[in-house]
Write a protein that binds this DNA or RNA. Structure first.
Length: 633
RNA sequence: GCCGGGAUAGCUCAGUCGGUAGAGCGACUGAUUCGUAAUCAGUAGGUCGGAGGUUCGAUUCCUCUUUUCGGCACCA
């Protein structure tokens, strides 16, 4: 039986017997065989050592290709697992996939691994690479696999195969050398030596078996892995740089805010941090006005009965704060919507009035799980740029598309372009009928289509009252944060009895759209700080200009310049300390002040100012009268 | 919430194999009046996160606790 192999260039060759990818590569050139990682066979990735037993179109995948990198990383996970089991007998394996930057493997072991163990494990990994163990693929039947893993004391693996894989399915087993194996779909490299040296274990941490908090806790060891050492080095450098932008670190350096033990998950805003907040708030207030919102304000606490009516108590009582007075229990508001409904309900509305749009910088408290708290990105007291649109069903699409373009404009104004749009669909725990959810989800899909955006759908992640569109921003170390959202809610008007009167004098339920653009002010400012590494653009900088006299004879003139800048609504300070100009320049540069205005005797005499922009050495001298206009222009 | 690592001067960190702690920067005082990223000298500053325990003696060891960091789970 001849096997016909078709190469990427269209050439064909036939072989008398099954042939491995490695042999084919060697037939082309030894150099190719050396660089080869896997082989693509009829569109599928195969091991180089797996005999090709059928006619096939093939392509050798060299280790510099993205598909190969995934295989290399997956191999690293296996080598990690073998290393751990050699060093710590009795440790059970579970899963170990490749990730965006490397790999991890989850182990079951009574004693958790420590950072100290990582070095030993990594050394053992390098040893296994050096041993260059052949990696071989075998096909087992279901029963053999379950028996093997049970006998080996691999309870998690056995459970997974027994409960997670159909009994008639064949399983592939990969062996590394003679003494170690794991069940895996593959493909893998031909031997452990091919893994190379560009990997590093970076952390350990607890995880739940199959991602469920009710299950056993496993130990995850995470590593990074690349095709070559230069890529690894570049990645580690990038991480190091990213860590320098951590908003918690920068907030301390620039004196923006602090947090302390007595108020976990809450923020003490210092003058400079609050100055940033004010700029963001005033900007968003402008957006409210432009897009037809009326700003309102609801109370911070309301009787718990209202939250029972709204459905929040059922869903979130564990995460709400309560307070008591005169035998009544109040909930500190975790959301602004019930308050806005009360404002809406205070009058009777005609269909002619819709849509009615309310907005609020709504302070909310949520008792987030302690482990979730993270700087000002995830807090227990936060402020939303919240808004609620009461409208007819026919108005939803227009409102959502208008919101979308407004939101995108806001993000780009703040310097963000890397956004992902997601549509979160009905969760298990929800209010309302399936028909209502169908209508709600389709309305949001229609609006997104009309806006011409690409989106990702997230089944099961909607709010209990309705589906939502989410806007996600990436931070400096690649973490994704949700900022904006618009949510379709037919339930809250029902529960809290909101109505409008239609053209037939009938009382009809409006649809409520919950929406936020920056989301949490706290989180958004945190992202801003990291995104700009503390060097906020001029319009956002807490201190925009420092006026620094060279020696004290220009102090009076410096004050005069500063007053003029303040009159022009610029955030300006003077630095009259008895320090050298070099010292002042350095200090305000480190403090990320965008403009330093240096004035000496010369400037004072000529009524000019010399400006130095952050990061530039170039100096520009201009008449005092032009300075404010120049800076604001 | 769960698993693990931390918490020492305002900040960044060192240190004590159990005998109540040290640096740099900052602050303060003085000198210096200087043209674009750190002038010099001196001084002050810490119940070593909190509460128990072991001990002649605890910042150090143990227990509990608060909080923080990383991971997971959660995120209306």
């Amino acid at each position: 039986m001849a096997i016909q192999i078709t190469f990427p260039d269209g050439n064909q060759k036939s072989f008398d017997a099954p042939i491995s990818g490695l042999a084919i590569a060697q037939g082309i050139s030894p150099g190719l065989a050396k660089k080869a990682a896997v082989i693509q066979v009829n569109g599928e990735l195969w091991d180089l050592t797996r005999p090709i037993d059928r006619d096939a179109t093939i392509a050798i995948v060299t280790r510099d290709k993205p598909e190969a990198l995934e295989v290399i990383r997956h191999d690293a996970a296996h080598v990690l697992a073998q290393a751990v089991q050699e060093l710590f007998p009795g440790t059970q394996v579970t899963f170990g996939p490749s990730t965006e930057t490397g790999f991890y493997y989850d182990f079951a072991r009574d004693t958790p691994f420590t950072e100290m163990d990582l070095e030993a494990i990594e050394n053992k990994m390098r040893d296994i690479v050096k041993r260059d163990l052949p990696i071989t693929r075998e096909v087992w039947d279901h029963k053999t696999a379950v028996e093997h893993f049970e006998k080996a004391g691999e309870k998690f693996k056995a459970e997974w195969i027994r409960d997670g894989i159909a009994a008639d399915e064949e399983l592939t087993i990969y062996k590394q050398g003679d003494n170690w194996l794991d069940m895996c779909l593959g493909p893998h490299l031909p031997s452990t030596g091919k893994l190379g040296t560009a990997f590093k274990l970076i952390r350990v941490g607890g995880v739940y078996w199959r991602g469920d908090a009710n299950n056993a806790q496993l130990q995850r060891i995470t590593g990074v892995c690349f095709a070559n050492d230069d890529d690894l080095k570049a990645y580690l450098k990038m991480v190091e740089e990213a860590e320098k932008r951590d908003h918690r670190k920068i907030a301390k350096q620039l004196d923006l805010f602090h947090q302390q033990e007595e108020a976990p998950g809450m923020v003490f805003w210092h003058p400079k941090g609050w100055a940033i907040w004010q700029v963001v708030e005033q900007y968003v207030r402008g957006v409210y006005k432009k897009s037809g919102y009326q700003e309102v304000r609801g109370p911070q606490i309301m009787d718990v009965s209202l939250w029972k009516k709204s459905g929040h108590w059922d869903n979130y009582q564990d995460n709400m704060f309560f307070t008591e007075s005169e035998k009544r229990t109040y909930a500190v508001k975790p959301m602004n919507c019930p308050g806005h409904v009360q404002i809406y309900n205070a009058g009777l509305h005609s269909y002619r009035d819709l849509p009615i749009r309310y907005a609020e910088f709504g302070g909310c408290h949520r008792n987030e799980p302690s482990g979730a708290l993270h700087g000002i990105m995830r807090v227990r007291a936060f402020t939303q740029d919240d808004g609620h649109i009461f409208c007819m069903e026919s108005q939803v699409e227009g409102e959502v598309t208008a919101f979308h373009s407004q939101a995108m404009k806001v993000y780009s104004d703040f310097g963000f372009t890397d956004l992902a749009v997601k549509l979160a669909l009905r969760p298990d725990k929800r209010l309302g009928t399936d028909e209502a959810w169908d209508r709600a989800e389709n309305a949001l899909r229609a609006a997104l289509s009309a806006a011409g955006v690409a989106w990702e759908e997230l089944p099961g992640e909607g709010a209990f009252y309705g589906p939502k569109i989410e806007y996600h921003l990436k931070d400096s170390i690649g973490r994704s944060w949700q900022v904006g959202t618009i949510q379709y809610d037919p339930m809250m008007p029902e529960r809290l009895d909101a109505v409008y009167v239609d053209e037939n004098s009938q009382r009809i339920r409006p649809i409520m759209l919950h929406r936020a653009i920056v989301g949490s002010m706290e989180r958004f400012i945190g992202i801003l700080i990291e995104h700009h590494a503390g060097s906020l653009p001029f319009w956002l900088a807490p201190v925009q200009v420092v006026v620094a006299p060279i020696v004290s004879d220009a102090d009076g003139y410096a004050k005069e310049v500063c007053e003029l800048l303040k009159d022009a609504n610029l955030r300006a300070n003077t630095d009259l300390r008895n320090e050298k100009i070099n010292y002042k320049i350095r200090e305000h540069s480190v403090q990320k002040v965008p403009v330093i205005a240096v004035v000496g005797r010369k400037e004072a005499e000529e009524k000019t100012v010399t400006l130095r922009r952050l990061g530039e050495e170039r100096q520009v001298t201009m008449p005092l009268a032009d300075v404010a206009k120049h800076l604001l222009g």
